[in-house]
Nucleic acid binder design. Sequence first.
DNA 1: TCATTATTCTTCGGAAACCGAACTACAATA
DNA 2: TATTGTAGTTCGGTTTCCGAAGAATAATGA
Lengths: 173, 173
Amino acid sequence: MDQPITSAALRAIRRVLRAADQGGRKLASVTGLTPSQLLVLQEIEQRGETLPSAVAASLQFGQATVTNIVDRLEAAKLVTRERGTSDKRQVVLRITEQGRAVLENAPDLLHKRFKIGFNQLPAWEQAMILAGLERLGELLDAGEIDAAPLIDSGVIDRDLAPELRRQDRDTNR
Amino acid sequence: MDQPITSAALRAIRRVLRAADQGGRKLASVTGLTPSQLLVLQEIEQRGETLPSAVAASLQFGQATVTNIVDRLEAAKLVTRERGTSDKRQVVLRITEQGRAVLENAPDLLHKRFKIGFNQLPAWEQAMILAGLERLGELLDAGEIDAAPLIDSGVIDRDLAPELRRQDRDTNR
DNA sequence: TCATTATTCTTCGGAAACCGAACTACAATA
DNA sequence: TATTGTAGTTCGGTTTCCGAAGAATAATGA
């Protein structure tokens, strides 16, 4: 059905995704910083001084999510929350020294693994990979997809599920 | 610090990751199948008849996680659970007709978006992207990384956090 | 054969990521 | 001033993961 090259590419993508995921998980267990937290932290560092809404927009997270994550970062003293002066509705986020230190010492593992290998590749190959990735990025976030043509074909019934589960299994023993 | 090309590549990777994530989330809201569920389902389909442990190993999930996900898939009747005959500790997973149908109708959006764009690219570019991706996959899951050199530099104190949070904010008003 | 050890899976409890909807301040506008 | 808009937060809910402990069954060895 698919071109072989297409599905090979898909497999490769999934592999990359999985690797990223795993790396993140491991990172979390070691540093106490989850991937999302790291992302937010990086975002804040890059911008120097931002608003939660900006972070949310850029990371495509909901505001609620950002609040949540910033809560943790603040508790860990990696980030500062301060009410805006001109517009008091706003909240200004700043990274702390500690935050910066964490970013230095805990480049996420994806980053790390990647860098190690990548730097060893010949330049042409680096260029090729980069070009491919960028193309891919374009493909993937090109415009909103219409998520229409997915008919109701056996969708999960969330309310029914829990009961069914236990019951089904018990009758099975 | 990093070569510019390295960090460009990293940005590109993150972009791809984010796109995948978003796509997955959207998919979930439409079909009721989350990305992980889809992965497990696909895995079961491919293998035709498997054990949870095999799925877990291949997807690099914990057993508990697989149990959890299979619970949902089973409740949705996309998958069948049956005790093994020769070894009764085992559980045999099979995809149902419905499950197959769902896989057909709900190729995940990543897949979909990707296919659309990808197929339109000239062959050489497809080849290039593929090569880049595969190289990347190798880089990323090359061997276990030693997650050692991450010193305790401002790690989150999980127990302290929740209290701090609320308190800090209240004093802030 | 019986007891011990291993295995396969499930259950339980817990952290975190997300989100939408309701809500609170504050700002801007008419 | 009254209304409408905007920035963040809170609340409640779902899902993903995991580790540890448990139950059932197999395999092993004395």
